[in-house]
Design a protein around this nucleic acid. Structure first.
Lengths: 236, 236
DNA sequence: TAAATAGTGTCTTTCAGACAATATCTC
DNA sequence: GAGATATTGTCTGAAAGACACTATTTA
């Protein structure tokens, strides 16, 4: 009988299992992803190369994949509960030189960090640039998929609200949409859309540096994003 | 130093890794999913219970997760290249009594099989019923997620075309949409939408059993689904 | 010709885009 | 008040829903 059919005993080789997180923020009017460096140790694969935060699932420490992703996010950014969504998984014999391996990709949206990352081995990299960079493993593909998914969902959801500190104003929110989508949006249509979607809560006027102050908002339910009835600019 | 930080050696426990496939078809005017039975062997978890097709990744046989899913689909249905899409992954300490385990869920769309499945241990089950049944592992949740994803995508993509044998007619296609969405659609709007999306190729008239014959179609590109500019019924 | 099914035309509704007009704030 | 920014109003256009109408086939 073939080995693969007789697996009651569980004594067959298992793939490596890791979790990787693509962490997005908007900084200096640009969409950024957090990159870290692989250890310099020559026994490690891709020593010194840029990669996204992640690592092997720790069977003793992590109760679930989501926990593991949240832990890695917390370790790298300090954020406990921003937006964290499963992206996809990758697994093959060739993606890791150490053997058959799988990774569960997540993507996270966090508000702009107060300072540059204190960590020498971490850097906020322009998102589009990261997709062209040489990264460890198949991380370029993972970042590409995350960016594609983010841009696609931004067309019809309130996801960018998770990229801002609260309270934020509608012009600020519009600006984040424009940065992520890399195109200008109409002010009037934008406001109608956000307010009609009923996911924002007024939280008092915020004075502006110049000109008229704006209404401050926070999201009503921090757990899920709102879904709009249509995408932006359905037509070319 | 903590064990979890010293992993250059790779000698730490690894989770079990499996792939499970939710296979959909439309049969007898209902959306169905393929269920199989767990082995009766009492040493196996959930003996004799219904589950979806799947199993451990075979490191020696499968080059990638996608290959593994395609293999399982082929084994169960005989189909080589229908629509197969990654759904999500699940992984935790508790989902399998044998230990920390992960699964990569896929969902497949196949045309209606000619006959009842020949396999005694497999059955096409009504999709909504399957979501309420007791299934092995967390398979009920996986089926639920697949069903939700399918219904959601059917609102704005041409996915149901993969549930039909070619050539099919527009009334047949509309019927499949209606079965999946469980609500009637307007004929005129439906036709406009399908033809405007430009993913169908005329392939000659198909005579009907009664009444006027209809134009037969096949999908232009069997690889990807078309995406419509809006969802059906944007408004309640 | 009647019944059944396929396919078309047209009016209404919804909501995004364009863009002008108005409101409110700081200096 | 001037300049800057926020907010609103109105017109237009694209595509979906509703539904009546026409076309083609078989019995």
């Amino acid at each position: 009988m073939k080995k693969s059919l007789n697996r009651t005993s569980l004594d067959f080789p298992r793939p490596l299992v890791s979790v990787d997180v693509v962490i997005f923020t908007v900084l200096e009017d640009a969409l950024k992803v957090l990159l870290t460096r692989r250890p310099e140790n020559e026994e490690e694969p891709f020593p010194g190369l840029w990669c996204i935060p992640g690592g092997f699932v720790d069977v003793d420490r992590d109760d679930s994949l989501q926990d593991c992703a949240a832990r890695k996010l917390q370790e790298k950014t300090g954020y406990a509960a921003p937006y964290l969504e499963q992206l996809a998984s990758w697994g093959s014999a060739s993606r890791d030189p150490r053997g058959w391996s799988t990774t569960h990709g997540y993507f996270a949206l966090v508000p702009p960090p107060a300072a540059k990352t204190g960590d020498e081995r971490a850097e906020w990299c322009d998102a589009d640039a990261a997709c062209k960079k040489r990264l460890a493993f198949d991380h370029r593909e993972i970042v590409g998929t995350a960016l594609e998914r983010l841009r696609s969902k931004v067309e019809y959801t309130s996801l960018p609200a998770f990229l801002l500190n609260e309270p934020f104003t509608l012009p600020e929110l519009q600006h984040v949409y424009e940065v992520v989508l890399a195109r200008p949006l109409d002010k009037s249509a934008f406001r109608r859309r956000m307010l009609d979607a009923d996911f924002l809560q007024e939280v008092g006027t915020v004075p502006g540096a110049f000109g008229r102050g704006a209404m401050g908002y926070k999201v009503r339910e921090r757990e899920r994003a709102a879904i709009f009835p249509r995408t932006f600019r359905a037509v070319e």
